[in-house]
Structure formats: structure tokens, C-alpha cells
């Protein structure tokens, strides 16, 4: 991952507050809707799952692939996004 997307930068720049789950990089409209259906409506809910999986890349990507049928890239994007957010805010 040499460069990050604009969405990533924006998410990582500030506290997530009440942002929706589709503000996380790698999670667009489709995946976002699937997550909302499963109950992960806010970014912080997904962060909770991410933390429950011990911030582990492999586990998290596996989980998100299984749960909402995300592809590998989307999984990794959202993983780096949450990871970086945690690095700067926790």
C-alpha cells in the first residue's frame, strides 16, 4: 500500500464521531448496505468488531469476506483504514 485514497485520508484525519459505516475506506454503497443489514450501521460498530478480532489483519479480512462478501482489496482497504485510525486515536 504505497498510496491511500482520499476517503482513507479523510477518515483517518479526525475522530469518527457518528459517521456511517460507509465512510470507511473500501466500503462503498453496496458493502455499506450489506453491513447495515447485518446491524453494523455505524463506523464505530465495525470498529468494535475489528477490535474483537484483535486488530488482526487475517482474521478481519476473512471475517468481512465471509460476512458481506467483500473482496480482498476492499477487505484490506477497510482494514488499513481502521488500523490507522486506531494508531492515531487510541
Amino acid at each position: 500500500m504505497s498510496s491511500t485514497s482520499q476517503k482513507h485520508k479523510e477518515f483517518v484525519a479526525e475522530p469518527m464521531g457518528d459517521k456511517g459505516v460507509n465512510c470507511i475506506a473500501g466500503i462503498g454503497e453496496v458493502l455499506g448496505n450489506r453491513l447495515v443489514e447485518k446491524g453494523f450501521d455505524k463506523a464505530y460498530v465495525l470498529l468494535g468488531q475489528f477490535l474483537l478480532l484483535h486488530k488482526d489483519e487475517e482474521l478481519y479480512i476473512d471475517w468481512i469476506k465471509e460476512e458481506i462478501k467483500a473482496n480482498k482489496k476492499q477487505g484490506r482497504d477497510s482494514y488499513t483504514c481502521l488500523k490507522e485510525w486506531c494508531d492515531s486515536f487510541m
Binding site: E37, K38, G39, F40, D41, V45, Q49, L52
Partner: peptide, 8 residues
Amino acid sequence: PPAPLTPT
């Protein structure tokens, strides 16, 4: 309200 259902 709908919430994520995980093992936990």
C-alpha cells in the same frame, strides 16, 4: 434495533 450478531 438491529445489531450485529456475532458469537460475542
